[in-house]
Design a protein around this nucleic acid. Structure first.
Lengths: 213, 213
DNA sequence: GTCTATAACTCGATAGAC
DNA sequence: GTCTATCGAGTTATAGAC
Protein backbone atom coordinates (compact mmCIF):
# COMPACT_ATOMS: atom_id res chain seq x y z
CA UNK A 1 0.00 0.00 0.00
CA UNK A 2 1.25 3.47 -0.87
CA UNK A 3 1.90 5.79 2.07
CA UNK A 4 0.41 9.11 0.98
CA UNK A 5 2.23 11.97 2.67
CA UNK A 6 0.65 15.36 2.77
CA UNK A 7 2.73 18.50 2.39
CA UNK A 8 3.22 19.08 6.08
CA UNK A 9 4.47 15.53 6.61
CA UNK A 10 6.78 15.85 3.62
CA UNK A 11 8.30 18.97 5.14
CA UNK A 12 8.68 17.44 8.57
CA UNK A 13 10.32 14.34 7.16
CA UNK A 14 12.72 16.47 5.17
CA UNK A 15 13.44 18.67 8.18
CA UNK A 16 14.13 15.62 10.34
CA UNK A 17 16.60 14.32 7.83
CA UNK A 18 18.43 17.59 7.23
CA UNK A 19 18.55 18.81 10.83
CA UNK A 20 19.63 15.48 12.29
CA UNK A 21 22.37 14.96 9.75
CA UNK A 22 23.75 18.53 9.54
CA UNK A 23 22.71 20.20 12.77
CA UNK A 24 21.02 23.57 13.08
CA UNK A 25 23.79 25.92 11.95
CA UNK A 26 24.78 24.02 8.83
CA UNK A 27 21.23 23.17 7.76
CA UNK A 28 19.74 25.35 4.99
CA UNK A 29 16.06 25.99 4.50
CA UNK A 30 16.74 25.28 0.85
CA UNK A 31 18.16 21.84 1.74
CA UNK A 32 14.91 21.03 3.48
CA UNK A 33 12.81 22.40 0.63
CA UNK A 34 14.75 20.40 -1.96
CA UNK A 35 14.60 17.26 0.18
CA UNK A 36 10.81 17.75 0.44
CA UNK A 37 10.50 18.45 -3.29
CA UNK A 38 9.23 22.02 -3.08
CA UNK A 39 10.48 25.59 -2.64
CA UNK A 40 11.54 27.57 0.40
CA UNK A 41 8.46 29.80 0.47
CA UNK A 42 6.20 26.85 1.07
CA UNK A 43 8.03 25.55 4.10
CA UNK A 44 7.93 29.05 5.55
CA UNK A 45 4.21 29.13 4.87
CA UNK A 46 3.78 25.97 6.96
CA UNK A 47 6.28 26.53 9.75
CA UNK A 48 7.05 30.24 9.68
CA UNK A 49 10.75 30.15 10.62
CA UNK A 50 13.82 27.93 10.74
CA UNK A 51 13.92 28.28 14.51
CA UNK A 52 10.35 27.06 14.95
CA UNK A 53 10.96 24.06 12.70
CA UNK A 54 14.08 23.14 14.60
CA UNK A 55 12.29 23.39 17.92
CA UNK A 56 9.63 20.98 16.71
CA UNK A 57 12.18 18.43 15.50
CA UNK A 58 14.38 18.80 18.55
CA UNK A 59 11.51 18.38 20.99
CA UNK A 60 10.32 15.31 19.12
CA UNK A 61 13.76 13.68 19.06
CA UNK A 62 14.44 14.62 22.63
CA UNK A 63 11.21 12.96 23.68
CA UNK A 64 12.00 9.78 21.77
CA UNK A 65 15.46 9.58 23.25
CA UNK A 66 14.57 10.13 26.89
CA UNK A 67 11.15 8.54 27.02
CA UNK A 68 12.60 5.12 26.33
CA UNK A 69 15.45 5.53 28.82
CA UNK A 70 13.05 6.70 31.47
CA UNK A 71 10.64 3.86 30.93
CA UNK A 72 13.44 1.32 31.39
CA UNK A 73 14.95 3.08 34.40
CA UNK A 74 11.65 3.49 36.22
CA UNK A 75 10.34 -0.04 35.60
CA UNK A 76 10.30 -2.40 38.58
CA UNK A 77 13.11 -4.65 37.41
CA UNK A 78 16.31 -5.06 39.38
CA UNK A 79 19.53 -3.35 38.33
CA UNK A 80 20.90 -6.23 36.29
CA UNK A 81 17.66 -6.58 34.33
CA UNK A 82 17.61 -2.87 33.69
CA UNK A 83 21.17 -2.99 32.43
CA UNK A 84 20.26 -5.66 29.91
CA UNK A 85 17.11 -3.84 28.84
CA UNK A 86 18.92 -0.52 28.46
CA UNK A 87 21.62 -1.94 26.25
CA UNK A 88 19.16 -3.83 24.02
CA UNK A 89 16.81 -0.87 23.79
CA UNK A 90 19.57 1.53 22.81
CA UNK A 91 20.76 -0.73 20.09
CA UNK A 92 17.30 -1.20 18.60
CA UNK A 93 16.58 2.49 18.76
CA UNK A 94 19.90 3.68 17.39
CA UNK A 95 19.99 1.24 14.52
CA UNK A 96 16.81 2.96 13.32
CA UNK A 97 18.02 6.43 14.21
CA UNK A 98 21.81 6.49 14.19
CA UNK A 99 22.11 10.28 14.03
CA UNK A 100 19.95 10.80 17.10
CA UNK A 101 22.58 11.05 19.87
CA UNK A 102 24.93 13.38 18.04
CA UNK A 103 22.00 15.57 17.07
CA UNK A 104 20.83 15.87 20.65
CA UNK A 105 24.31 16.37 22.08
CA UNK A 106 25.14 19.11 19.60
CA UNK A 107 21.82 20.83 20.17
CA UNK A 108 22.26 20.71 23.94
CA UNK A 109 25.80 22.05 23.67
CA UNK A 110 24.68 24.88 21.42
CA UNK A 111 22.02 26.00 23.89
CA UNK A 112 21.86 24.33 27.30
CA UNK A 113 19.03 26.71 28.33
CA UNK A 114 16.88 25.05 25.74
CA UNK A 115 17.64 21.65 27.18
CA UNK A 116 16.80 22.71 30.72
CA UNK A 117 13.56 24.32 29.56
CA UNK A 118 12.55 21.13 27.76
CA UNK A 119 13.34 18.79 30.63
CA UNK A 120 11.15 20.96 32.83
CA UNK A 121 8.36 21.13 30.29
CA UNK A 122 8.10 17.44 29.41
CA UNK A 123 6.44 15.06 31.82
CA UNK A 124 9.25 12.63 31.03
CA UNK A 125 12.13 13.82 33.17
CA UNK A 126 15.53 12.21 32.65
CA UNK A 127 16.65 13.85 35.88
CA UNK A 128 14.06 11.99 37.93
CA UNK A 129 14.63 8.73 36.12
CA UNK A 130 18.36 8.88 36.69
CA UNK A 131 17.91 9.84 40.31
CA UNK A 132 15.63 6.90 41.10
CA UNK A 133 18.06 4.56 39.37
CA UNK A 134 20.89 5.97 41.49
CA UNK A 135 18.95 5.15 44.63
CA UNK A 136 18.20 1.65 43.44
CA UNK A 137 21.85 0.97 42.64
CA UNK A 138 22.93 2.15 46.08
CA UNK A 139 20.31 -0.08 47.66
CA UNK A 140 21.45 -3.18 45.75
CA UNK A 141 25.06 -2.40 46.62
CA UNK A 142 24.16 -2.34 50.31
CA UNK A 143 22.26 -5.59 49.94
CA UNK A 144 25.30 -7.17 48.30
CA UNK A 145 23.40 -7.95 45.09
CA UNK A 146 26.02 -6.09 43.06
CA UNK A 147 29.56 -4.98 43.78
CA UNK A 148 30.28 -1.58 45.24
CA UNK A 149 29.92 0.64 42.18
CA UNK A 150 29.05 4.31 41.93
CA UNK A 151 25.70 4.80 40.15
CA UNK A 152 27.24 7.51 37.97
CA UNK A 153 29.91 5.12 36.82
CA UNK A 154 27.47 2.39 35.92
CA UNK A 155 25.29 4.73 33.87
CA UNK A 156 28.30 6.24 32.13
CA UNK A 157 29.57 2.78 31.23
CA UNK A 158 26.26 1.65 29.77
CA UNK A 159 25.69 4.82 27.79
CA UNK A 160 29.28 4.94 26.58
CA UNK A 161 29.32 1.39 25.28
CA UNK A 162 25.89 1.71 23.69
CA UNK A 163 25.93 5.17 22.18
CA UNK A 164 29.51 5.99 21.21
CA UNK A 165 29.75 3.45 18.38
CA UNK A 166 26.88 5.24 16.65
CA UNK A 167 28.33 8.69 17.25
CA UNK A 168 31.67 7.77 15.75
CA UNK A 169 30.37 5.45 13.07
CA UNK A 170 31.36 7.50 10.03
CA UNK A 171 34.92 7.78 11.23
CA UNK A 172 35.05 4.07 11.90
CA UNK A 173 33.56 3.23 8.55
CA UNK A 174 36.17 5.40 6.91
CA UNK A 175 39.11 4.07 8.88
CA UNK A 176 38.17 0.44 8.28
CA UNK A 177 36.76 0.88 4.79
CA UNK A 178 33.43 -0.74 5.56
CA UNK A 179 29.83 0.09 4.70
CA UNK A 180 27.19 1.13 7.18
CA UNK A 181 25.48 -2.23 6.83
CA UNK A 182 28.67 -4.10 7.65
CA UNK A 183 29.34 -1.79 10.57
CA UNK A 184 25.88 -2.30 12.00
CA UNK A 185 26.38 -6.05 11.76
CA UNK A 186 29.52 -5.73 13.86
CA UNK A 187 27.55 -3.70 16.40
CA UNK A 188 24.72 -6.22 16.49
CA UNK A 189 27.14 -9.06 17.17
CA UNK A 190 28.73 -6.92 19.85
CA UNK A 191 25.57 -6.48 21.95
CA UNK A 192 26.01 -9.69 23.95
CA UNK A 193 29.65 -8.80 24.55
CA UNK A 194 28.61 -5.46 25.98
CA UNK A 195 25.94 -7.00 28.16
CA UNK A 196 28.38 -9.57 29.50
CA UNK A 197 31.04 -6.99 30.15
CA UNK A 198 28.75 -4.72 32.15
CA UNK A 199 27.10 -7.59 34.05
CA UNK A 200 30.42 -9.26 34.90
CA UNK A 201 31.68 -5.91 36.12
CA UNK A 202 28.73 -5.80 38.52
CA UNK A 203 29.44 -9.14 40.18
CA UNK A 204 33.21 -9.33 40.12
CA UNK A 205 35.51 -8.46 42.97
CA UNK A 206 38.32 -6.67 41.19
CA UNK A 207 40.80 -7.10 44.01
CA UNK A 208 40.54 -10.88 43.88
CA UNK A 209 41.10 -10.90 40.14
CA UNK A 210 44.08 -8.58 40.43
CA UNK A 211 45.81 -10.96 42.85
CA UNK A 212 45.49 -13.88 40.46
CA UNK A 213 47.06 -11.98 37.57
CA UNK B 1 57.79 34.91 32.92
CA UNK B 2 55.28 36.56 30.60
CA UNK B 3 54.40 34.56 27.48
CA UNK B 4 54.40 37.14 24.69
CA UNK B 5 52.04 36.08 21.91
CA UNK B 6 52.41 37.65 18.52
CA UNK B 7 49.38 38.48 16.42
CA UNK B 8 49.41 35.24 14.47
CA UNK B 9 49.48 33.18 17.66
CA UNK B 10 46.70 35.25 19.17
CA UNK B 11 44.53 34.56 16.15
CA UNK B 12 45.29 30.85 16.14
CA UNK B 13 44.51 30.52 19.82
CA UNK B 14 41.23 32.33 19.33
CA UNK B 15 40.39 30.22 16.29
CA UNK B 16 41.13 27.01 18.20
CA UNK B 17 38.80 28.04 20.97
CA UNK B 18 35.93 29.20 18.76
CA UNK B 19 36.08 26.41 16.18
CA UNK B 20 36.41 23.59 18.72
CA UNK B 21 33.56 24.86 20.86
CA UNK B 22 31.10 25.91 18.13
CA UNK B 23 32.11 23.93 15.07
CA UNK B 24 32.64 25.36 11.59
CA UNK B 25 29.12 26.38 10.62
CA UNK B 26 28.23 28.17 13.85
CA UNK B 27 31.61 29.89 14.25
CA UNK B 28 31.78 33.55 13.20
CA UNK B 29 34.90 35.31 12.01
CA UNK B 30 33.86 38.10 14.35
CA UNK B 31 33.82 35.68 17.31
CA UNK B 32 37.41 34.81 16.54
CA UNK B 33 38.39 38.45 16.06
CA UNK B 34 36.79 39.47 19.36
CA UNK B 35 38.36 36.51 21.17
CA UNK B 36 41.75 37.55 19.78
CA UNK B 37 41.14 41.20 20.64
CA UNK B 38 41.24 42.66 17.14
CA UNK B 39 39.00 43.18 14.10
CA UNK B 40 37.91 40.86 11.34
CA UNK B 41 40.04 42.50 8.66
CA UNK B 42 43.20 41.56 10.46
CA UNK B 43 42.46 37.88 10.74
CA UNK B 44 41.67 37.84 7.04
CA UNK B 45 44.97 39.57 6.41
CA UNK B 46 46.77 36.73 8.21
CA UNK B 47 44.77 33.70 7.10
CA UNK B 48 42.82 34.86 4.05
CA UNK B 49 39.55 32.91 4.57
CA UNK B 50 37.45 31.11 7.16
CA UNK B 51 37.95 27.87 5.27
CA UNK B 52 41.72 28.12 5.35
CA UNK B 53 41.74 28.89 9.07
CA UNK B 54 39.51 25.95 9.78
CA UNK B 55 41.71 23.63 7.74
CA UNK B 56 44.74 24.65 9.80
CA UNK B 57 42.97 24.06 13.11
CA UNK B 58 41.38 20.80 11.99
CA UNK B 59 44.65 19.39 10.69
CA UNK B 60 46.39 20.31 13.92
CA UNK B 61 43.70 18.75 16.15
CA UNK B 62 43.47 15.71 13.95
CA UNK B 63 47.21 15.20 14.25
CA UNK B 64 47.14 15.53 18.04
CA UNK B 65 44.28 13.08 18.33
CA UNK B 66 45.65 10.32 16.14
CA UNK B 67 49.33 10.72 16.77
CA UNK B 68 48.93 9.71 20.39
CA UNK B 69 46.68 6.75 19.57
CA UNK B 70 49.07 5.57 16.91
CA UNK B 71 52.09 5.82 19.16
CA UNK B 72 50.40 3.63 21.78
CA UNK B 73 49.06 1.12 19.27
CA UNK B 74 52.36 0.68 17.45
CA UNK B 75 54.55 0.39 20.56
CA UNK B 76 55.95 -3.06 21.34
CA UNK B 77 53.81 -3.70 24.42
CA UNK B 78 51.38 -6.58 24.61
CA UNK B 79 47.64 -6.05 24.20
CA UNK B 80 46.86 -5.69 27.89
CA UNK B 81 49.57 -3.09 28.37
CA UNK B 82 48.32 -1.19 25.36
CA UNK B 83 44.80 -1.23 26.73
CA UNK B 84 45.97 0.35 29.96
CA UNK B 85 48.11 2.91 28.17
CA UNK B 86 45.31 3.84 25.79
CA UNK B 87 42.81 4.45 28.55
CA UNK B 88 45.23 6.51 30.64
CA UNK B 89 46.42 8.51 27.66
CA UNK B 90 42.90 9.34 26.52
CA UNK B 91 41.95 10.58 29.92
CA UNK B 92 45.00 12.80 30.25
CA UNK B 93 44.55 14.20 26.78
CA UNK B 94 40.82 14.78 27.01
CA UNK B 95 40.92 16.43 30.40
CA UNK B 96 43.10 19.09 28.75
CA UNK B 97 41.08 19.15 25.56
CA UNK B 98 37.52 18.01 26.27
CA UNK B 99 36.03 19.41 23.07
CA UNK B 100 38.49 17.56 20.87
CA UNK B 101 36.52 14.40 20.01
CA UNK B 102 33.24 16.12 19.23
CA UNK B 103 35.08 18.65 17.09
CA UNK B 104 36.78 15.96 15.06
CA UNK B 105 33.69 13.78 14.74
CA UNK B 106 31.55 16.68 13.55
CA UNK B 107 34.21 17.81 11.12
CA UNK B 108 34.59 14.31 9.71
CA UNK B 109 30.82 13.92 9.38
CA UNK B 110 30.53 17.26 7.60
CA UNK B 111 33.10 16.29 4.99
CA UNK B 112 34.44 12.75 4.99
CA UNK B 113 36.50 13.51 1.87
CA UNK B 114 38.52 15.89 3.96
CA UNK B 115 39.18 13.18 6.50
CA UNK B 116 40.32 10.70 3.88
CA UNK B 117 42.58 13.28 2.28
CA UNK B 118 44.17 14.05 5.64
CA UNK B 119 44.76 10.44 6.63
CA UNK B 120 46.54 9.94 3.33
CA UNK B 121 48.57 13.10 3.67
CA UNK B 122 49.82 12.64 7.22
CA UNK B 123 52.65 10.24 7.90
CA UNK B 124 50.74 9.15 10.98
CA UNK B 125 48.06 6.81 9.66
CA UNK B 126 45.33 5.68 12.02
CA UNK B 127 44.41 3.03 9.49
CA UNK B 128 47.81 1.40 9.71
CA UNK B 129 47.96 1.68 13.49
CA UNK B 130 44.57 0.05 13.88
CA UNK B 131 45.43 -2.66 11.41
CA UNK B 132 48.62 -3.66 13.18
CA UNK B 133 46.74 -3.73 16.49
CA UNK B 134 44.12 -6.00 14.92
CA UNK B 135 46.82 -8.44 13.92
CA UNK B 136 48.38 -8.38 17.37
CA UNK B 137 45.02 -9.05 19.04
CA UNK B 138 44.36 -12.01 16.76
CA UNK B 139 47.81 -13.38 17.51
CA UNK B 140 47.33 -13.15 21.29
CA UNK B 141 43.91 -14.77 20.97
CA UNK B 142 45.50 -17.72 19.15
CA UNK B 143 48.20 -17.94 21.79
CA UNK B 144 45.54 -18.00 24.51
CA UNK B 145 46.89 -14.86 26.18
CA UNK B 146 43.46 -13.22 25.94
CA UNK B 147 39.96 -14.56 25.38
CA UNK B 148 38.54 -14.87 21.90
CA UNK B 149 37.56 -11.28 21.18
CA UNK B 150 37.16 -9.51 17.87
CA UNK B 151 39.75 -6.72 17.51
CA UNK B 152 37.03 -4.31 16.36
CA UNK B 153 35.06 -4.97 19.51
CA UNK B 154 38.00 -4.39 21.81
CA UNK B 155 38.87 -1.08 20.16
CA UNK B 156 35.25 0.06 20.20
CA UNK B 157 34.96 -0.76 23.89
CA UNK B 158 38.09 1.16 24.83
CA UNK B 159 37.23 4.21 22.76
CA UNK B 160 33.61 4.21 23.91
CA UNK B 161 34.42 4.07 27.60
CA UNK B 162 37.17 6.67 27.29
CA UNK B 163 35.74 9.21 24.88
CA UNK B 164 31.96 9.24 25.30
CA UNK B 165 31.96 10.75 28.81
CA UNK B 166 33.71 13.80 27.39
CA UNK B 167 31.41 14.05 24.38
CA UNK B 168 28.28 14.01 26.50
CA UNK B 169 29.68 15.94 29.44
CA UNK B 170 27.50 19.03 29.12
CA UNK B 171 24.33 16.97 29.09
CA UNK B 172 25.51 15.02 32.11
CA UNK B 173 26.47 18.15 33.97
CA UNK B 174 23.02 19.54 33.28
CA UNK B 175 21.12 16.41 34.21
CA UNK B 176 23.00 15.94 37.46
CA UNK B 177 23.47 19.62 38.29
CA UNK B 178 27.23 19.40 38.71
CA UNK B 179 30.12 21.60 37.63
CA UNK B 180 32.76 20.61 35.11
CA UNK B 181 35.34 20.27 37.89
CA UNK B 182 33.12 17.87 39.81
CA UNK B 183 32.38 15.91 36.67
CA UNK B 184 36.05 15.57 35.80
CA UNK B 185 36.70 14.29 39.31
CA UNK B 186 34.12 11.56 38.76
CA UNK B 187 35.83 10.66 35.50
CA UNK B 188 39.27 10.59 37.09
CA UNK B 189 38.06 8.22 39.81
CA UNK B 190 36.46 6.11 37.08
CA UNK B 191 39.69 5.40 35.18
CA UNK B 192 40.68 2.37 37.24
CA UNK B 193 37.15 1.01 36.94
CA UNK B 194 37.37 1.26 33.18
CA UNK B 195 40.77 -0.37 33.07
CA UNK B 196 39.57 -3.23 35.27
CA UNK B 197 36.44 -3.71 33.25
CA UNK B 198 38.27 -3.97 29.93
CA UNK B 199 41.08 -6.13 31.32
CA UNK B 200 38.70 -8.50 33.10
CA UNK B 201 36.74 -8.81 29.89
CA UNK B 202 39.92 -9.95 28.17
CA UNK B 203 40.63 -12.82 30.55
CA UNK B 204 37.16 -14.00 31.48
CA UNK B 205 35.38 -16.94 29.95
CA UNK B 206 31.84 -15.63 29.68
CA UNK B 207 30.26 -19.05 29.30
CA UNK B 208 31.63 -20.20 32.64
CA UNK B 209 30.31 -17.11 34.36
CA UNK B 210 26.91 -17.47 32.75
CA UNK B 211 26.53 -20.98 34.15
CA UNK B 212 27.25 -19.82 37.67
CA UNK B 213 24.64 -17.04 37.57
C1' DG C 1 50.44 45.67 10.36
C1' DT C 2 46.21 47.46 11.81
C1' DC C 3 42.21 49.98 11.30
C1' DT C 4 37.40 51.78 9.18
C1' DA C 5 34.38 51.44 5.55
C1' DT C 6 32.18 48.93 2.31
C1' DA C 7 31.61 45.61 -1.32
C1' DA C 8 29.88 40.95 -2.32
C1' DC C 9 27.39 37.25 -1.09
C1' DT C 10 24.49 33.89 1.50
C1' DC C 11 20.34 32.86 3.33
C1' DG C 12 16.06 33.37 6.01
C1' DA C 13 11.81 35.53 5.33
C1' DT C 14 7.99 38.05 2.94
C1' DA C 15 5.04 39.99 -0.98
C1' DG C 16 2.16 39.11 -4.34
C1' DA C 17 0.64 36.53 -8.58
C1' DC C 18 -1.82 32.41 -9.69
C1' DG D 1 -1.73 26.10 -1.20
C1' DT D 2 2.02 26.79 -4.18
C1' DC D 3 4.95 29.38 -6.92
C1' DT D 4 8.44 33.35 -8.54
C1' DA D 5 10.61 37.38 -7.31
C1' DT D 6 12.73 40.11 -4.06
C1' DC D 7 13.84 42.26 0.26
C1' DG D 8 16.92 42.74 4.07
C1' DA D 9 19.78 40.99 7.83
C1' DG D 10 23.87 38.86 8.79
C1' DT D 11 28.62 37.38 7.27
C1' DT D 12 32.67 36.73 4.71
C1' DA D 13 36.00 39.15 2.31
C1' DT D 14 38.38 43.23 0.27
C1' DA D 15 39.79 48.33 -0.51
C1' DG D 16 42.13 51.89 1.02
C1' DA D 17 43.59 55.18 4.71
C1' DC D 18 46.99 55.50 8.35
Amino acid sequence: MLEQENTEEKILNAARKVFTSKGYAAARMDDIAKEAGMNRALIHYYFRSKDKMFQIIFEEKFRIFFLSISSVLTSDNDVKEKVVNLIRMYFEQLIENPDLPLFIINAVNASPENFIKLTNKLNVSPKEAFKSFHIQVQKEVEEGKIRNIKPYVLILNILSLSIFPFIARKMFMNINNISETEYFEILENRIEDVINMVLNDLIIDNNKLKDSK
